[in-house]
Computed example of a mutant assay.
Amino acid sequence: MVVEKEGSIEIGGQSLYTKSWLPDGPAKAKLVFIHGFSDHISRYHTFFSALAARGIAVHGFDQRGWGRSVRKPADKGLTGPTSQVLADMAAFITPHLPASPADPPVFVMGHSMGGGQVLTLACHPSYQDSLVRRVRGWLLESPFIGFSPEEQPNALKVFAGRLAGKVLPHFQLKHEIPPEHLSRDPAVVRSIAEDKLMHHTGTLEGLAGLLDRAAALARGEVRPLPGGALRSLWMSHGTADKTTWFQASKKYFDECTGEVKDREFKAYEGWYHELHADGPDSELFFRDVGDWILARCDGDPEAKL
């Protein structure tokens, strides 16, 4: 039996919606999850329920500007700059970190835009000792490190948007990803098209921050730091992803993660963007994520590196 709990957290003067999926019994591990663009945490229900059934407690929140954290139209996509995005994530993760060796280990995972955010946080110098070193492992699902060829934006449009963003940072702009590019499952495609919480709206400031984070990762300017604070990394991507680019993720993993002692790249052949919702095959993804987390929960964590 899985227990679901809704709530809220006050971060930076704003109330953000939270939800947890808890095992029926003591948790073996905790997973803090960061969702993607125009997304919300409730869309991962099947995935999180499968993890909770294996003893992994999952905690997530609708990020500033997204999902049920939007209270009025002006809130849509109002994420703030990257510094705000990282501070929000850190503020949500920190209360879940273990207070003693007896507490279950904590893992952090991000999908798509959230994957790029999680990787940026894990590599940020300011958070190494206070947060990164206290997280047992980091997981990335289809992280946004580069656009797929199908989603590559027009360079002139990006340039004009950046100029306008300096004058009107909160100006809202629609960017809708075709639902059929996200999943091979027709039922999931329909649910995305009908989901009123997926508003596909960003601000010029937020979209610029999104592009800047991805570009910094793609250029290798943001990478795990020497010293081993980021101990374990699992990166996953579908080879047929039509939204974020498989090749960008693989290149980053091969060229930029050498400082991580325990690392793995998992390619899902022919899968689309939402590995957690790509049809019946997604049960394999659930199992892979659960196996990776649980393998790092028993005994001395350092002994598994």
Rank of each mutant, 00 (worst) to 15 (best):
F286L: 02
V58Y: 03
L204M: 13
S236E: 11
N154P: 06
A214V: 11
H45C: 11
Y44N: 01
W271H: 10
I11Y: 13
A295S: 10
K266G: 12
S236P: 00
S148K: 14
G228F: 14
E269K: 15
R287Y: 05
A27L: 02
S69C: 05
K251S: 12
R133F: 03
T243C: 13
K28T: 05
V106C: 09
E274N: 12
Y272D: 04
D212M: 11
L97Y: 14
P105C: 01
A27R: 00
L121I: 12
V106T: 09
V108L: 06
L140M: 12
Q84P: 01
E274S: 04
V289D: 08
G165W: 05
V2F: 05
S15M: 01
D88V: 14
T120G: 10
Y268Q: 01
W138A: 08
L139Y: 07
I34E: 12
A74D: 15
C256G: 00
S42P: 02
P101L: 14
S249Q: 04
L121R: 14
F246Q: 10
E141I: 09
K174P: 07
F144Y: 10
S183E: 06
T120L: 09
D278V: 01
A102V: 10
Y17V: 10
L284Y: 08
R71F: 01
L168D: 08
S42C: 06
A99W: 00
F48E: 02
G115P: 00
K76Y: 01
Q247H: 12
G290S: 00
R133V: 08
D103Q: 05
S49N: 04
Y17E: 09
R136G: 02
I177F: 00
E255S: 14
A215D: 15
K5H: 08
S282N: 02
V135E: 08
L86V: 15
G55W: 11
R231M: 12
W66K: 07
L86A: 14
D262A: 07
A187C: 02
F92L: 15
E4I: 11
A99G: 11
S126M: 03
H237V: 06
V118N: 09
W21H: 07
P153A: 06
